[in-house]
Each structure stands twice: as C-alpha cells, then as structure tokens.
Design a protein around this nucleic acid. Structure first.
Lengths: 211, 211, 211, 211
DNA sequence: CATGAATGAGCTTTCATTCAT
DNA sequence: CATGAATGAAAGCTCATTCAT
C-alpha cells in the first residue's frame, strides 16, 4: 500500500517550495514563519520536516531555485539578437511589470546572503554562472561590433547585473516612477555604456583625459 | 524644580541609536533583537523604552539618521567641480572602501521599506531630497555643458542612485571584485551615460529613431 | 489522511479551561498570568496558544463557561415549586457553602466586564438569559398567586439577581456571618419583597400614595 | 529655605491620593500602574515613593479613604428622618447618578479585599463601622415603630449594605436599566423588608409556615 | 523636595523544532 | 506519509521599585 515513490516526494517538495517562495516574497525570509509556509502549503508543521531538515534548508532551496530561474531568464535572453534589447526587456518585465515584490525578494536575498554564509555561497556560485552567461553575450556583441571591445566582458557583466539590482531598489525608493520613461532612460544608460565609441581613437584618449 | 539636562537625555539617545545601528548593520532589522541592542548599548532591557517607545521607533530613527547621512554626503558631493567625479568618489569610498556591511544595511533598509509602510514613507521622503540634490547637480552640469541636456535631470538622478544601490549589491554578489577596476568601469558607464553626445545633431536623431 | 480526534482536542481545551478557572478564582483575571495557567494545566507556555489565541480568549471562554453554569443553576431552580425557596437554596449553596472564592470570582468578572468591552458583552447577553428565566419564574408565581402581581417581572428579576451579587460581597465584607441566620434574614427580605400584599386594595393605594 | 512643613506634605499626599483614586476608578487596582498615577498626579516616579512606600500602600490608603467617604455618607444619611428614604437617596445618587465607574471601583475593591489580606482587614474594619451606623439607624426606626422589631439590626444592616453592593453590579449587568423604575422597585423591596408587619401576630406565623 | 535615569523580573506571545501516534 | 500535540527558548514590552543628583 505504501508508496515510496521518489517522484511523488520530489513533486511535493516542489509544491512546498513554491508555497515557501510565495511566503518569502510576501514577508521576507525572517518575516515568514514555518507556520506560514505550512499554512500556505497546506501541510502540517511536522510534515514540513519530512521534506526539509530546517527552515534554513528551505531558504537555501528557495535561493537555489530563485537563482536558477534567473539563470534561465538570462539563458533565454541570450537567444535574442542584441544584448541591450535583451537586458531592457528583462528590466521592463521583471522590475516594472507585474509583481514588484519579487524585486524586494531579491534585495532580501542579497541582504541575507551577506549575513548567512550558506546562502552567500549559493548566491556567489550562481552569480558566477549568470555573469558568465552575460559576459559571453557581451563578447559575442564585441565580435559583432555591437559592444565596445575595450570593455572587459566579465566586469561589464557584473556592472550590468548591478544595474538590474539597482533598478529593483528604484521601484521601492520611488514607486511612482513611470515605467516607460524609466526604461527608456535605462536604455540610454546601458546602450551608451556598451556601444563602441564612434571614433575608435577617442576611446583611448578618453581614458587618458579621465572624463 | 530644575529641569534636568535634556542634553544628556539626547546624548544617551544618540548613544543607544549608535549601538542599535551597529546591531542592525551586523544582523539586520529583523535579526537584531532589542536585547542585542541593550547589550550593545550596555543598558537594561527596560531602560531602552525610556528612550524609545518601541523597536519600530528605533528602526525609524535609524532610518532617518542613515538617510540624513546619505543626504549630507550628497550635499558634500555637490561641492565638487564635477558630478561624475563626485559620484565616483562616493561609490569608491562608500562601497568598496572600509565597511561593506553598510551596503548590506542599505539593502536591508530597502527591503524593510517595501514591507513596512512607516519605514517606506521615511525612505521615500528622504529619497526625494537626495534625488533633488543630485538633479540640481545634473542641471548645473547641463548648463556648463558637462551633462547631456537631453537627459531629464530627475529621472537621470533616480537612475544614478539606482547605480549606487546596485553597486552595493555587487559587493555581495562578488566580494572578490577589484575595487579599482570596478570603479574605473563604473566611471566609464556613468560618464558615457551623462556626457553630451559628441555630435549635437545625433542626439536629436537618436530620439527620432527611437534607439 | 485521518483527521485526528477533535474530541481529544476539545477535552484538553476543557482541561486547560478548568486550570485557568482555578487560577482566576484564586488570583483574579489580572492577577493570574498565562504562566500560572500553564503551570496549573501542566503544559508549556507555547502550547497554551495551540488551544487559545490569547489570554483574553481564555478569559472570554471562562466567562462564557461560568455564566453558562449560572444559567444552568437557574434552570434547575426553575424546577422547584416556589421561587423564594429556590432562590434561597441557591443563595445558601453558592454563597455560604463550600468555596466562597467563587463569589470573589463573580465580583472580579463584574469589574472586568465594566472595563473590558468583550467580556462586558458576554456578561450582558448571558444576564438577559438568566433574567428572563427568573422573570418567567416570577410570572408563574404571579399566576399562582405566590408573587405580587404589581411587580414587573423583568425588573424584579434584575433586583433579585442583584441581591445574589450583593450576597457575594457580604461574605467578603463580613466573613464571620452565620450562614443560617443570614439566609433566614435574606429569606425574609425576599419573601416580603415578592409576597402579594395581604390586602389587595392596599396595593393600589400604595401606588397612589407613592410610598 | 527648605520647608519641612508637615502640612504641605500631607496636602501633597492627598493630591496624589486623589490622582490615584481617579486612576483606580478608571482602570482598576491592577490595571492602573504607578506610572499612570504619577502622570495623573504630575509628579515623577521617584517622588511617588517619597509619599508612599509602595503601590500596595497607595491601594491601602485609597481603600481607607474610599470607605471613610462611605462612612461619611452614611453618617449624613443618619440625619434624615427615615431609614428607607435615606437608603434610597444614597442608592439613586451613588449608583444610577453620575459616574457609574465608582460602582465598578467598589466591586474591584471587594475582589481585591478577598485576595489581599491587608486590604481585606481594612475593609472589614470599616465595614463594621458602617454596619454599626446603619444598625443604630434601624434600631431607632424600631423604637419609632418604623422598622420591624423582629429584625436583628446588625444582620439587617449587613443585608441592606449587600443590596447596595448588588445594585452596583446591576448597573454593569444591565446598563440600560431605567434609574427611576429601578429605584422605585428597590424602594418597594427595602420598605417591605423593613416595615413592621401590619398584624404583629402574623410575623411569627409566617416564620413557622416557611413562606 | 524632586527629578528622571536605571534596573531586572515578569508579562503575553511567537517560533523553529521534535515526538508520539 | 502525515498529523497535530508538545516543547522551551526567545521575542518585544511593562512595571514596581531604587538610586544618583
């Protein structure tokens, strides 16, 4: 009669993780209790510990999951023809569109990562993946002449990711911001940042003059 | 009959606030308990409530204080000759220099602001001040021909602030980043963003083409 | 899958309620702490909140329970042949008999009701029930000629209940009172209050003279 | 310069006591804190202990004071021509008139007396005084033929006081009660209780028949 | 006389976790 | 697999009281 189906087990685990994600997005890692998660997942408190050894483990799993999704999104972006266009689509979709509390969740995750070594390590590992993806994209852009070859792809990727993180903060600091205008301005910033200088020589000169 | 030193009271209040700030920087708003704060401030648990009516009030006061400091820094920046230089100095000093946990604190504050209406309001009010300061700086830059006149100063200011927020996240995502290289790259990003297009006509064209 | 015994849950709830009742009787609503209740019920402090959402809820439940018992007692009284006899039996049993601290509990409940709106509402609702019961009893007495028909049953019932409340205060004011003598005297007071005037005409006259 | 005027000291003590009384009437003995009392009396917490060694002492003093007032009132009553009239005047004034929270205060005091030996003793002592006053009044009534001589004055006095206590409970149980109607009904109850039987012989018979 | 700073025990409540069934 | 009873530490906060000035 008993089913020790590992597939079902994993399925349930995922359901709980989804429920936990909703709680964390809503109330933050500290603000959401295991009780909240159990209620959201419609399971008993004891049962939660059948799938996860601790709340920390849930937080870790969510972190892994959340960043895996980010990686996926960036993978999808990588299909697009143009880095700038792709990044902006992501910015518009993920930050000004729909549920802004996901942005808050990311900030929460970052803050948690800075204090919780376990989470921190996960973040850093996954960040490297994402950065590598973006760096590769930039490199391809450089090869196609769309991106300034003077920019170190890894470092530029880090900066671009920081722009995305910052944009999440922006919606909190100033919720009244117009999405279209802001995206347009971000587009200018990013495209100017990446675009090769019109005059190749000027790039060198600019660095020397320190503008 | 004599009213005993309200100065001393304020002094102690500030001491407690400093202690609370250290706790919040270390453990976050949720992670730090009133007990922790009392221990750090070397006072008894009951005495804390002689100076603050609730933990929330302490969080508010810290938020006000922290953002007032940010405003001050930006006021100081405004003295410098050049927006870009000033912003970069701040980025280098505040983010890569010294105590990076202050960056984490800011992310915590942002996340808290998104969920705690009281804190949110404080943040938004102060953000407006800071943004206005920066916008004025940009406007002056535009008048001096240092900044692209096509950029809306308010919106550009918001974006620049988001870059600073993002940079704080960057140090968490990638603690190994070299400060000098990263600052240099940020300098490129910011200066390219703000710099007037070499050819004035091209600016107009850009808008028409919608690039 | 199986829904585990809601009967057991209710049983434990009742046990805790009994323990709380003992604490409240002993120390009053304010004087008894949740710790006291937990100790009396032999459960851990956290577990109390598995059964009741707050101390206030326990107070409410106890109030409901205590007044339900009072209603029952009055229902039982209503079986007796005679209002006066029944009331006196209750007075003797409940006030001078056994545990006088239950009287104190009732005074506590009354004082709490005056200040705590939630408890107040419960008291008033239940009081109406009890008063109605007693009023019906009086009406039947009037029909049988045992009770003065000039007395408004509702008002007279209120007065009789106030005599019972007052009797509880009496045992505190003067613990040395002899139960038999006092009951006898109360019997006189109540029976004279309710008994139809020997001369029917005099009743009318009394009202005209306003004595 | 320093005034160790014992008169002023006593004056201040009384002021504090008045303030404490207002707090206790409003919030009860347990519900009112020493802080509340200090705020109401406009003194500092430390200063309170210059006049009273503890909160308990304040409660005691208030108890003494409150019951002294009650004694005074009954002394005043004793001037009137008729016990029943006097009692009713007091009932109407003190219970249905003005501030009903004073009734709640009395119930609080009774409950406290049952649990706090110190307060209990004060109550019982003062109660004896009041009862004696009332008993004397009743005795005089008996001598004048206004009161049934078969009633033991002390016991009847106790019962009458219990009616007053009960009336205080009545206003809590049923705040909508009409003062005039209720007073009228109480008048009937009290006057019938005390009034000498129209036929002296019938009194004896009544007791034997057990009506 | 008077202030208000300071204490520390205790309050109600929450929470992550464990255990018996 | 699943429940929910049970725990105990810790949270934020209040309070009567003491002490230095």
């Amino acid at each position: 009669m008993r089913k020790l189906d590992p597939v079902k087990h994993e399925e349930k685990r995922q359901q709980i993780l989804q429920a936990a994600a909703r709680c964390f997005v809503r109330d933050g890692f500290r603000g959401a209790s295991t009780s909240d998660i159990c209620a959201e997942a419609k399971i008993s408190p004891g049962h939660l510990y059948h799938y996860f050894p601790s709340k920390e483990a849930i937080v870790s799993a969510i972190t892994v999951f959340g960043l895996a999704m980010a990686t996926e999104i960036f993978s999808a972006i990588a299909q697009g023809p143009d880095v700038v266009t792709a990044l902006l689509a992501e910015l518009e979709r993920g930050i000004f569109g729909g549920d802004r509390s996901k942005g808050t969740f990311m900030l929460d995750l970052l803050a948690e990562s800075a204090r919780n070594p376990g989470i921190g390590e996960i973040l850093r590992e996954r960040h490297c993946e994402i950065r590598a993806l973006l760096a590769k994209l930039l490199q391809e852009g450089q090869e196609r002449g769309q991106v300034d070859v003077d920019l170190d792809p890894d470092l530029a990727a880090s900066i671009l990711i920081s722009f995305i993180d910052g944009a999440k903060a922006m919606t909190i600091r100033d919720p009244g911001l117009d999405a279209a205008n802001t995206t347009e301005m971000l587009k200018i910033a990013i495209s100017r940042f990446l675009r090769p200088p019109s005059n190749k020589a000027s790039a060198k000169k600019r660095q020397h003059r320190g503008v």
